[in-house]
Design a protein around this nucleic acid. Structure first.
Ligand code: ZN
Ligand code: ZN
Ligand code: ZN
Ligand code: ZN
Lengths: 152, 152
DNA sequence: GCCATAATGATAAATTTTATCATTAACTGA
DNA sequence: TCAGTTAATGATAAAATTTATCATTATGGC
């Protein structure tokens, strides 16, 4: 019996980039891994692992692989964790670099933004606490334009 | 058979404050709820719910109550969520007001700090994206003074 | 194409979280 | 102080999430 699995469309260009990122890390470029990546890439609001697992079951990707792949993609910098208003752990597709998330508490849409200046704050914290600051995690939340319009 | 349950020490002063916070919200001040609160108050690095549940079992507090109480205390502003370097959800005792966490990635110690100026950033985000900004979540991580000394 | 082996799926197990309900105990007010 | 009311708890079960194991598959390098 033959299983037909429809893959999400992608450009040769993007495939080459992905292959490069995987290859550089010594990881294989499998059908399942690309399916996971394509799913997250198409969801602006990101997904929790259970959500992703449910969606990917239809594409023939098992739950264990979803867990393993999310961890891998996070390590490769292709996914980032965010936490929605309810504190739920979600993963969103990420470009490399220093990005943060602006999350709508109503529809869950995530808008990435680049640029934040916490250098002054970090300098103060260093002198006050003796910590060696290594990074930060910032999420801004509120209502997006359309939800703002609906929710009065 | 009589069960003796040793409660954590506390001042009459503090008990009165707690009773007030609970009462104002129409919640009862129970032995279990105080035990949960005392546990978190004594842990600078906070705890995950399973960690708290394990510690509180010895004090005669069941897991279900730990979950219920953590949610309640968070609602009352007595606990705040933080996420450690591994992305784990922890709860830490919190004073009311606008605080953030400085988390040591090695020992997990949490230092609260007050004061952050994101007003400029939020203003830019508002005009750029049309979001109505309602708040933010900021965590800074690194190595505390003593872990810095140990880890070279 | 063949090989070595990383990666997967299936399965089971462990862990975490939620639901249900009879029992307990905290507040109220007489 | 002492019932009466009812929120809160513990016990239990169930659901959901996450991890582990291992035989089988399929990728990447040759
Ligand atoms: Zn929205
Ligand atoms: Zn930043
Ligand atoms: Zn430390
Ligand atoms: Zn702030």
């Amino acid at each position: 019996m033959i299983k037909f699995i429809i893959m999400a469309k992608r450009s040769k260009q993007e495939e080459a980039e992905l292959r490069h990122v995987f290859g550089k890390a010594g990881a294989r470029f499998t059908r399942q891994r690309e399916a996971v990546w394509q799913l997250f890439k198409g969801k602006a609001r990101g997904l929790t692992i259970p959500e992703a697992a449910k969606a990917l079951k239809r594409k023939g990707v098992g739950p264990a692989t979803v867990y393993r792949t999310a961890a891998l993609l996070e390590g490769l910098g292709l996914l980032r964790r965010v936490h929605d208003a309810g504190g739920e752990r979600r993963f969103v597709a990420s470009r490399p670099g220093h990005y943060h998330a602006l999350v709508c508490r109503s529809c869950g849409q995530v808008v990435d933004f680049e640029g934040c200046d916490l250098s002054l704050l970090e300098r103060v914290l260093t002198t006050e606490t003796g910590f060696r600051i290594e990074g930060h995690h910032l999420e801004v939340f509120g209502l997006c334009a359309s939800c703002k319009a609906v929710n009065k």
